[in-house]
Computed example of a mutant assay.
Amino acid sequence: MNDKVKVAIIGPGNIGTDLMIKVMRNGRHLEMGAMVGVDPQSDGLARAQRLGVATTAEGLDGLLKLDVFKDIDIVFDATSASAHRRHDEVLQAHGVQVIDLTPAAIGPYVIPAINLEAENAANMNMVTCGGQATIPIVAAVSSVAKVHYAEIVAAISSRSAGPGTRANIDEFTETTRHAIEKLGGATRGKAIIVLNPAEPPLIMRDTVFVLCEAADMHAIEESIVKMVDRVQAYVPGYRLKQKVQFEPVPPETPLNIPGLGPRHGLKVSVFLEVEGAAHYLPSYAGNLDIMTSAALACGDMMARRRLAAGVARGHKETV
């Protein structure tokens, strides 16, 4: 017999709808309770209704009015960084666990391959899609050698970027940069996102450039490959596009890092692609898949903790 807790998703856009499908198909300790939006005509709300999930088009206030809210243990917020601040304040007052898929970064950054089990906060921030894809690589290099600088470029199909993603470009770059330093271990980080308008849509591609202290190249490559395997455990479409590339940077010709000055060592270049599971948008939308897969892993862990502690508000047992 498996205990499950009810969850709600705020934001029935691309990310929220993909996450709903993942919860219903793959959630080990999660059960859909409600889908929340503000547009009565949204495809996500219509799909949730067809699947028998309670819905409201009155936003967070509508969720509080639903009968099922008393049983909701976890709320995933897939709206915007600005909206999330109010959502978190209200939900915390009701003792609800919040998992933040916006770049608001109120709670600690969480990337399953790095620190899933280490964090236990009332608000867990899933960084960004680009961060989920690239920061594990920075962390893999940091486990072998000190990283002076890490720069990531996340290129996603324009068709996979909904209004929430487009409204949060500035927050994306800042949150990802901070997480590169906090979780990746880089002294200084930089993040760039590219919305590619190509037709047919292109699969998500990510590039990671790292300048680290001189170290054993084989050890770095081995660490990166092991990290890719860890991410693949919950995002099967995540993979290296080609072998890791290395370029020594000698002391006599150092690279000038803004804010740090001249640095030498070893330049490491890693090229990734993320193929989506096509639960909602087609497989080119790997940015959806890696974000929602990470959120699902976080939600399952938090549900397991709440059940073990006996604090779940309205879980039920299913055979």
Rank of each mutant, 00 (worst) to 15 (best):
M227W: 05
V231N: 00
Y234G: 08
G259F: 07
T253I: 13
G261M: 03
L240N: 00
V249T: 05
P258K: 04
P258Y: 09
H264L: 13
E247V: 15
Q245E: 15
V228Q: 07
D229Q: 15
Y234V: 03
K226V: 01
H264G: 08
I224F: 12
L266P: 03
R230H: 06
K243P: 15
K241M: 10
I257E: 02
R230P: 01
Q232T: 07
N256F: 03
P258V: 12
G261Y: 09
V228Y: 02
K267N: 12
P262N: 03
G259Y: 04
Q242M: 11
E222N: 10
S269L: 15
I224S: 01
P236C: 00
R230K: 15
V268Y: 14
P236I: 08
K241L: 09
H264A: 15
V270P: 13
V268S: 02
Y234I: 01
P262D: 01
G237S: 06
G261I: 01
P258L: 08
R239N: 08
L255Q: 04
L266Q: 07
A233K: 09
F271A: 11
G265A: 07
G259T: 00
V270Q: 03
K226C: 12
A233E: 00
S223C: 01
I220A: 10
V231Y: 06
P254F: 01
R239D: 08
H264D: 12
G237D: 04
K226Q: 10
V225P: 01
M227K: 10
K243N: 13
V228F: 02
K267M: 11
E222Q: 15
P248H: 01
L260G: 13
L260V: 06
E247F: 15
L266A: 02
I224K: 14
G265F: 07
I220K: 03
V249Q: 00
V235E: 14
L240H: 09
E221K: 13
H264E: 14
V235G: 06
R263W: 01
V268K: 00
N256Q: 13
G237Q: 00
V225Q: 07
R230A: 12
F246D: 08
R230E: 12
K267V: 11
Q242H: 03
E221C: 12
E252H: 02
S223L: 04
M227A: 08
K241D: 01
P254N: 11
K267L: 11
K243Q: 14
Q232F: 11
Q245S: 15
P254A: 04
P250M: 06
Q245R: 14
G265S: 13
L255S: 10
E247W: 09
A233I: 08
F271T: 03
E252D: 05
D229M: 09
